[in-house]
C-alpha cells in the first residue's frame, strides 16, 4: 500500500507543478486531471486499508470521475474557443452562428 500512497503524493506534486508552471492551456488542464487522479488514488487506498473493503470511497471516486470528465469537456470547449480567437484565420464554421442570417 505504501507504494501507492507515495505514488499518490508524487502525482499530486507533479500535477501541482504542471498547473503552476505550464503556460499552454491544454497542458494545464492535463495537470489538473493528474492532480485529481492523485486524490482519487488516495481515496481508493483508504478504502483498501479498511477491513472489510469499504465501498463508499469507491462510489465517491466513480462520482468524481464522471464529474472530472464533465469539467474537462467544458474546459476543452472553452480552450478551443479561446484558441480560435487567437488563431490568425478562424474557421468559417465558427464565425457563423446558426440563425445569425435571420438576424
Amino acid at each position: 500500500m505504501l507504494i501507492y500512497l507515495a505514488l499518490a503524493s508524487v502525482l499530486f506534486v507533479i500535477g501541482l507543478h504542471g498547473l503552476f508552471t505550464a503556460r499552454n492551456l491544454l497542458r494545464r488542464l492535463l495537470s489538473l486531471n493528474v492532480l485529481t487522479t492523485a486524490v482519487f488514488l488516495l481515496l481508493v487506498v483508504i478504502a483498501r486499508k479498511a477491513t472489510p473493503l469499504d465501498p463508499v470511497p469507491h462510489a465517491m471516486v466513480l462520482t468524481g470521475i464522471v464529474i472530472a470528465v464533465s469539467t474537462t469537456a467544458v474546459a476543452l470547449a472553452l480552450v478551443e474557443r479561446i484558441a480560435l480567437r487567437h488563431s490568425p484565420e478562424p474557421e468559417p464554421s465558427a464565425s457563423t452562428r446558426p440563425g445569425e442570417e435571420d438576424a
Binding site: R23, N24, L25, A83, H86, P88
Partner: peptide, 8 residues
C-alpha cells in the same frame, strides 16, 4: 511566422 514555441 509567430511561432513562439510553447507560449500561448
Amino acid at each position: 511566422p509567430g511561432d513562439r514555441g510553447d507560449t500561448q
